[in-house]
Simulated scan of single mutants.
Amino acid sequence: METPTSTRRLDRLPKAHLHLHFTGSMRHDTLIEMAEARGVHLPQALAEEWPPKLRGTDERGWFRFQRLYDIARSVLKRQEDMYRLLREAAEDEREAGSGWLEIQVDPSGYASRFDGLTATLELILDAARVASEATGVGIGIMVAANRTRHPLDARALARLARQYVGKGVVSFGLNNDERRGRARDFEAAFRIAKRAGLLSTPHGGELNGPRSVRECLDELDADRIGHGVRAIEDPYLVERIATQEVTLEVCPTSNVGLGVVEKVDHLPLRRLYDAGAPIALGTDDPLLFGPRLLEQYRIAREVFEFSDPELADLARMSIRGSGAPDSLKKEMLAGVDTWLATPPEDGAV
């Protein structure tokens, strides 16, 4: 019999993780170990005051965030580092109950170390394959363009991603500071990706408002939107997202860490959900923000009072919005039903 304190264990709820950046997935102790081994000096914010205090709502704050991210990326110098990162990311997903991880990476950030764009992407795809086989977690790669670079660079990445459809690449994204590159400038790259059968998964509606989200829908034909929480400022836009079933990748602790909202209870998670917007909870960059996927579900439960049936609904949304194979989606959705049919436990987390 269910009591007010009866809940089901969230780590046993099958789910998909759709918003995780490659370097940002690194464990903090792995960063410390690799930095020492590779001779990389870490600033105090990464070494001793972790997680760092961040705020990306002004240019100086975003620059500091990007600088820390770039320093962390610089420890990934050897092929074995890439294999380790993905193996540990998959292990963390398995512990959280995630059966599918869609991790996003801009291969150009590593190309100079690993013999060019194509060789870098093939290295990442092989590391993903090995990690998946070792953990049982499905892994898809999102090739993500950098909106602070020229749109021609994005087209080159889209053409590269197109070559690996059916070979591990499942989506095409657009990341970095949306105030420095409008979505519409990258329409040609996303047209290439969509025609190849890749999901369109740009960032939008994080540091900019509804116009950013609207451009992702109108110009990039988005299937999912990274963050998208600022859509709440336009009720008609939220209704459109719900009607078109565009999944919003909502990252609670990241949104607080970068100052999108002052406190986690200010996040419009409940309002978006109640309005019918599909939502996939994500972590963004746990290396810099701390909490991983399980904590995002705990926030939904403890801060926004999502019931177990509603948490199951969030998990289903993440699975349906993913680029996972249909067979895996079917298996995971059945697992969600099984989780919900299992009697709750007192004090379960």
Rank of each mutant, 00 (worst) to 15 (best):
L157T: 08
S98I: 10
L157D: 04
A275N: 06
L160Q: 05
Y297W: 01
M1R: 08
A127V: 02
R12F: 11
L86A: 03
A277T: 11
A222Q: 06
G168L: 00
D11K: 13
P51E: 03
D326V: 14
A144W: 08
T253K: 12
I241P: 13
E219D: 14
F114Y: 08
S322C: 00
S171I: 02
Q79R: 15
R214D: 07
K263I: 07
L85Y: 05
E310W: 01
L152T: 12
F65W: 09
A193Q: 03
L311D: 03
L86E: 03
R292K: 13
L340C: 08
E91Q: 15
R271D: 15
A128F: 01
A128C: 10
V137C: 05
H21D: 12
S212G: 10
E239G: 12
T7K: 13
R73W: 03
H227Y: 12
Q163F: 10
L207M: 15
A45S: 12
L42D: 03
S322H: 00
S322Q: 00
A277G: 10
R9W: 06
P286V: 04
A134M: 13
P210M: 05
R9D: 09
D285W: 00
V238R: 09
R270W: 05
G173E: 00
L86Y: 02
P202T: 04
L68S: 04
P252D: 02
R12D: 10
R270F: 06
P4I: 07
A158T: 10
P43S: 03
G228R: 07
D58F: 08
L117Y: 08
N146A: 10
E310L: 08
P14N: 02
R240H: 05
M317F: 03
K329F: 00
V40Y: 04
A111T: 07
V165M: 08
E95I: 15
W62I: 12
A144Y: 02
R271C: 12
T247M: 03
K329P: 01
C251S: 04
P107L: 03
I225C: 07
S74G: 07
A154M: 05
E262I: 08
K15G: 01
